[in-house]
Design a protein around this nucleic acid. Structure first.
Lengths: 245, 245
DNA sequence: TATAGTTGTCTACATAAATAGACATTTGAA
DNA sequence: TTCAAATGTCTATTTATGTAGACAACTATA
């Protein structure tokens, strides 16, 4: 492919950012796996039809993300590439199914409190508005890189020690088990993709303009009673959602 | 909420574009349903902490999309807001399930040809690479607004008249039926969100920087034999994917 | 018919993004 | 050791984006 890659001017998105996004995409597509190096800056400049300095701005942004590393005289190395594949099914569990895709999966509890259910939470959990719920804010990372942040709600009457059990066991599934709920299933999932807001940029360590996939999900016990309402935001360039029906 | 909305400088994304994206989001959230009007430009400028002219650039971009319309002396009206909700389940059919969300659903056949299966298509359909396949390029619109474009592959040996039947019946389901396949189910779906490329910007009439959700799906007959490999790109700001497990 | 509140348009200026060219520095291979 | 190829850094200039202020034009309402 010697054809010009497509960047557009006067769109409100700087050329260097468009180019950074395209290079990030081509890395995750595995276009440079053979060499492990990006094409030289002059070649990229030619492909995109821009000045070499503009390409350098794009590469600097990718280096800032830790995606590539330039070495003078040698070229620009790729340091990371793959997306994590998240299974979504009737029996979706968070860390399960990730298998050996990452050496180290970490889930951090950012905040825990009790709040009255807002309208959307109340509908999801099929309870009256303002019913007290336990809220957990989590951030999940793989090999030190954040991949998702989530807000979960549980009925505090039925699962009073959710936060404590989660802190001990580091797992929603085991925290449910500690309350005597051995099994649960996914009742509904809705997906939306949008630009990340400021909080997400910070939590997921994204660069502005980045995309998140927001999954709004309800888990239910075997009798079909909702037990968890969760809103999970995935860093879109780090994950692939695999839907199993 | 009188708090400042968050826009960031020197990120490679122009302020007017960030603001346009935030306003688009707040419209689709239904924040202005009560009045049907956006706040005055001076108020928006205050909320975002920018000059009124910058807000005007954002509004001009949204007006260009047909999302809002400014009327001198009155304010800026919202012309459109909702996202279409697409169900994704074991029995996903395209136009079914959209129900009464739009008055007019149109599917346009852009191209039809026979091509040797590329690697990903071959894996999806469980056939040898380079086996001849019928390829259909479709664009779907609701009330005149494009919501998705797709590329589908069918084994040409088993479904030789796929294109002809589709043209006649305007439906994949009915085209399968015409080949004697009365039922099929979704075998796999993978979702990825990314920025739209030039072709998608044009097909879906998006503004640069827009997001698409790419669904890569395989449908299979009741015996589990793959019959269709499809890559569908949804305009992210126009749809919500509802996963039914 | 005033008047307050809104969008439309203009000028001037400041800052960031992109182009253009030159040359230094480092690497790897002949 | 020499040299071609790559990244690093600098200066100068042009174009796009954002700020600031003033005022015109239009709408709804008192």
């Amino acid at each position: 492919m010697n054809a010009k890659k497509t960047v557009e001017r006067q769109t409100g998105v700087a050329l260097w950012r468009q180019i950074a996004d395209l290079i990030r995409l081509s890395i995750s597509n595995g276009d440079h796996d053979r060499t492990g190096l990006l094409p030289p800056e002059t070649v990229l400049a030619g492909q995109f039809g821009v000045n070499r300095h503009t390409v350098r701005s794009a590469l600097a942004a990718l280096a800032e993300e830790g995606l590539v590393q330039a070495i003078q005289g040698r070229g620009t190395m790729i340091r990371r590439k793959e997306r994590l594949s998240f299974p979504i099914s009737k029996r979706t569990r968070f860390s399960q199914g990730l298998g050996d895709q990452a050496r180290d999966i970490e889930v951090k509890l950012l905040a825990r409190d009790i709040v009255p259910a807002e309208a959307d939470v109340a509908v999801g959990l099929a309870i009256a508005p303002a019913t007290p719920c336990i809220r957990l804010e989590l951030v999940s990372s793989a090999d030190g890189r954040p991949v998702s942040c989530s807000t979960s709600y549980f009925l505090s009457e039925r699962f009073p020690l959710m936060a404590e059990h989660f802190e001990k066991t580091r797992s929603i599934t085991r925290a449910f088990a500690a309350h005597g709920l051995a099994d649960y299933v996914r009742a509904s999932t809705e997906l939306v993709a949008r630009h990340a807001d400021a909080a997400e940029l910070s939590l997921l360590r994204l660069s502005p303009g980045a995309i998140v996939i927001e999954a709004t999900a309800v888990n239910a016990d075997p009798d079909g009673v909702p037990v968890q309402f969760a809103r999970t935001r995935f860093a879109a360039d780090r994950v692939k959602l695999k839907i199993e029906t």
